[in-house]
Amino acid sequence: MNKLLAGKRLLITGAARGLGLDFAQAACAAGAQVVMADILDELVEQEAGALVEQGFDAVAVRLDLADPESIKAVAAFSAARFGEVDGLVNCGAIATGIGGPDMCELEIDTWDRVMTVNVRGTWLMSRAMVPHLAASTAGKIVNIASDTALWGAPRLMAYVASKGAVISMSRSMARELGAQNICVNTVCPGLTLVEATAYVPRERHEHYINGRAIQREQMPEDVTGSVLYLLSDLASFVTGQTLAVNGGFVCN
């Protein structure tokens, strides 16, 4: 891979596994220095260590997106590590089970937990990083939402609502942070073959495949290029945008 992100200093949340880990690995390969944050502290330490062994500049830190103090600590850690931070990827999130309870059966506690992590956590992590992104003079925030919020996936309401909020919030953030030369964009992956989707019923995978313009499974590498682009200098005049990366299941 070329060095699209050479010299870039990034914080990636949800980086212990799944798409977050793939983003961290791809960013390192593209020349970036990366702080990998996740609540799965032992796993993220292991994955960061594997990247260091390959000669990349990666370090792990524990992050609990439900805890405002943890968020502040990770922002301070990243700033201390780099001085300035060029990019933030908000990938950390939780989901309720696809095909689970419908809107009338959904527990209030589940709704509140998903909103706390996925929406408030994304907001607070972004807010904590704004001073450090502004100092870089070309800061980038990439928020990872989901194409479920674009087509209204059933029996997944808390997650869908949270990702819809992330999409809308990103547009508002782009308006507010543009004066500080910070670009804010959203990537909406489709159903991707990662650890976090291992529980998804096969019929849902088939529903996606059959509905795509490109009719095949979606792999992590189908998403990473879009995120790297939005973090790069090539996207310095791209902000407030929502990019659906799902093989044409949703044409946004």
Rank of each mutant, 00 (worst) to 15 (best):
M169T: 05
V119H: 01
S226V: 15
T242Q: 11
A138E: 14
M115K: 07
A244S: 13
S126V: 03
T110N: 12
L193A: 12
R113Q: 08
Y159G: 01
V166E: 11
N143W: 08
W111C: 03
S126A: 10
Y159L: 02
E176R: 09
I144V: 12
N210P: 06
D233G: 03
H207Y: 15
R216Q: 07
V114E: 02
Y208N: 08
L228D: 00
L243N: 08
A235V: 00
A161E: 08
V245M: 04
Q215N: 06
A213G: 13
V238Q: 14
A149W: 09
T224V: 15
V238E: 13
T242V: 14
V194I: 12
P131N: 02
H132L: 11
L231K: 04
C183K: 12
T148H: 12
R171Q: 15
L156P: 02
T116G: 11
I209H: 02
Q215D: 10
H205N: 12
T186E: 05
N210V: 12
A244L: 05
D147C: 03
V238P: 08
C188A: 04
V166N: 09
S168K: 15
D112R: 10
N118P: 02
T148L: 10
G247S: 11
V200E: 00
A213L: 15
I167F: 09
A158W: 06
V114A: 01
L243F: 11
L231F: 07
V160C: 01
Q180F: 04
W151D: 02
V166T: 10
S162G: 01
Q215G: 10
A179I: 11
Y229H: 14
L243T: 07
G211N: 03
S236M: 11
A149R: 04
N118V: 02
T137H: 14
H132Y: 15
A213F: 13
C188F: 03
N118F: 03
A145E: 10
R212W: 07
V117C: 08
N210I: 09
P220E: 12
L124S: 04
W111G: 03
V194M: 00
S126C: 11
S172A: 13
R127V: 06
G247H: 10
M125C: 11
E195Q: 07
L106I: 12
Q215M: 13
Y199Q: 14
